[in-house]
Simulated assay, not measured.
Amino acid sequence: MNENDPTLTIGVFARRSRLSVKALRLYESRGVLRPDAVDTSTGYRRYRESQLRDARLVRLLRRLDMPMVEVAAILSAPRHARAELVRQHALAAAERARHQSNLAELLQSVMSGGKDTYPMYTISTREVPEQTVLTEQRNVTADALPGFIADAGGRQLAALTTAGGPFGSSMVIYHGDVTEDSDGPVEVCSPIPAGVAETVSLPSRVDPSHREAFTRITKAQVRFPDVLSAYDAVESWIARNGERVAGPPREVYFADLMQADDGAEVADIAFPIASK
């Protein structure tokens, strides 16, 4: 036994770290904080006294509402890198709080007087011709959506560049709801001339001609859940104006998100429509 770093029973370790035995077992199962040794015959767990520092850190990180996966990442990181990871979490939390505040203000505006109106959005209509598009579709929830869009869009852009493109605005088409609990499916599309589509290795299809109602949004408004209000605004306009939704909604990107400022217009939220 290392006298400078003695082992502690789980009960003693729980008391000194001010974590419950139940919490310690949870952190062990999630790979966040594992005991130093587990007796295979009795199941008794023992921790090193030196682990108290990490245990107390876990307690503080969880008080920040930090997800387990982030806590595990911080504990597995070198000690000199941990402060930066906490800083990044704090910045992300502040950004989420800002978005929630903006959304709360929007909801107050929408529900004011009991009328579901969206004065901040201008709705227009247009005719969209038939076009051939590169396509990639997947079932994804909201947390995985940005990564899928970036990956699929990157693959399509590489193919288009080789073929002499891009040839128009890319689209993200939602064939089902995408939230923390619903997974679409979602389709990423990029227009390409029909003859050129035959020369690339990615799948393609024909997107039929249609009329659509749409509203233009900024980069800041693209973020989830803020973007949902733009969808609601277009749907509300469709219902009020004697139209009906005739196809899955889509985001049409006509600007580079990476290069745009938050206030720059970058996309249209559009619904194919038909008269009732």
Rank of each mutant, 00 (worst) to 15 (best):
N4G: 15
Y231Q: 10
H99G: 04
Y121E: 00
A260T: 03
V140A: 06
C189L: 14
T40F: 10
R98D: 08
E84G: 01
I74C: 09
R155P: 13
P6R: 13
T141C: 10
M171W: 00
D65N: 10
R240K: 14
L157T: 07
V200E: 02
K219Y: 05
I74G: 07
P185L: 07
S109R: 15
L8Y: 11
T141M: 07
D54M: 09
S50R: 10
Y44S: 12
V71D: 00
S169F: 12
I269W: 00
R15E: 15
A274T: 12
R59Q: 13
T135Q: 11
F214A: 01
E3M: 14
L19E: 01
R34N: 13
M66Y: 03
A142D: 05
I273A: 02
A14F: 06
R126M: 04
I217S: 05
A90Y: 05
L57Y: 08
Q221P: 01
G11A: 09
R59V: 07
N102V: 10
V71C: 04
E180F: 11
S182F: 03
K219N: 03
E70V: 04
E130L: 03
R48T: 05
A197Q: 08
K22A: 13
E95W: 00
P185K: 06
R62M: 08
A97H: 07
S112E: 15
D256A: 09
A270S: 10
S20M: 06
H80K: 12
G11Q: 09
E127I: 03
I10M: 06
E198P: 02
Y253A: 11
D54T: 07
P193F: 07
R59E: 12
M258D: 14
E251W: 05
V21T: 14
E84H: 05
R240S: 13
R63Y: 01
L160G: 02
R56T: 07
T161K: 07
P146G: 07
V266P: 02
E130M: 03
A23D: 09
W237R: 08
R53V: 12
A93P: 00
T218D: 06
